[in-house]
Amino acid sequence: MKFLFIIQGEGRGHFTQALVMKEMIGRHGDEVVACLVGKSPSRQLPDYFLTKMNVPLLPFDSPNFLPTAQNKRPDLLKSTLSNLIHFPGFVSNMMFIRKKIKEYKPDIVINFYELLAGLTYLLFSPSVPMVCIGHQYMFLHHKFRFPQKSAIALFSLRFFTRLTSFGSVRKLALSFYPMADDIRRSISVVPPLLRSDVLNRQPVAGEYIHGYVLNSGYIEDIKKWQQKHPEEKLEFFWDKKDAEETVNITPNLTLHRINDKKFLYYMAGCKAYSTTAGFESVCEAVYMQKPVLMVPAHIEQECNAWDAMKIGAGVISNDFDLDKLLAIIPEYTPNTAFRRWVSHAESLIYAEFREVYENSNCTCEAKTSYPL
């Protein structure tokens, strides 16, 4: 089988999932022919992704969230207005996506939550089957339970998620735990996609707190906390594109530019982990048996954090109050069932691909044999 990836380039989670998926596809003797990446001018493709993907990488401008002046939570109104202004350019990028699908002739398109992929299938109906993958598709499952949040915000999240998957033949909902498939909505519940470096690494109980923040404004909160607790060692990662590889703020507070190997090294050796509640890194922390402080930056991450609480991942906070994280360390109990669930990821996901491929070939043969 030949696969074409379309990736939403906000944060590190989708990039990591794509790399794991590429390795999985290679182990089965199949091929990723190209990777289309939706990105914004404020983000750059991480170095680890550029060096490891090793297929044609074709970026295009895509709708994105714009942070507030404090560079923390996204400004939804500003983001909406900005994306509407740039919508004519997004239409040309949908045509670009359609052109590349025709050019590369994949058997399956895999969409990692990119909005323009769904809109391309809405407006242009490419003949190649599209499979969507991401934790967000759990939000469309009829049995998923949401936190008590704004009804408008939850509706918007589900509506956006539906748009990303318009025209898809299957939605693979990455989940913290097993759940029955939602057949009517074409949702298959599958385990998280974790890197082999995570699966094979032996965690140890360290003496420092590890962390990751997408928007750099949160760093000020972390600095203030560390000033009150100078004895606590903090090793945090960010993706500020003009930052040095390593910045020593104080003797016990170090900021690292995002690097996949270094990130996992510090994850494996920490005593606890703090993050803005992205699905991928929370999964890595739970797998490595580290308690997590989750500080959601928007409604999607609020749902991620709520869902992670169901498996005992850690604690939710409105800010980076690391006192809350330190408080749960003595009583934290690792979730061993999560590790068993993750071990089934490849077999379950690849079974879905084979079924989509076989169904697509049957459909094509039927159309060839019995033309209208």
Rank of each mutant, 00 (worst) to 15 (best):
M1A: 15
I7G: 10
G9H: 01
A18G: 05
R27Q: 15
D30C: 13
L36H: 08
S42E: 10
S42D: 10
P46I: 08
F49T: 01
T51R: 15
V55Q: 09
F60N: 08
A69V: 15
D75F: 05
L77A: 13
K78P: 03
L84K: 15
H86I: 03
N93C: 08
E103P: 06
P106S: 13
V109T: 02
L115P: 00
A117M: 04
T120P: 07
P129F: 13
I133R: 01
I133D: 08
I133F: 02
Q136L: 06
L140G: 03
H141Q: 03
A153Y: 04
L154A: 08
R158P: 00
F159K: 00
F160R: 01
R162E: 01
F166R: 00
F166N: 03
V169R: 08
K171Y: 00
L174I: 11
P178W: 12
P178T: 10
V190R: 05
R195G: 04
I209C: 06
L214Y: 02
Y218I: 02
D221G: 10
K224Q: 14
K224H: 11
Q227Y: 06
E245R: 13
V247S: 13
P251N: 07
T254S: 14
T254A: 12
M267W: 04
V282C: 15
V286D: 08
P291R: 01
L293M: 12
L293Y: 09
M294R: 06
E300M: 05
G312Q: 11
V315D: 07
I316V: 05
F320E: 05
D323P: 03
I329K: 07
P334G: 04
T336P: 02
F338L: 08
W341I: 07
W341T: 06
H344A: 15
A351L: 07
Y357L: 12
E358R: 10
C362E: 09
T363S: 07
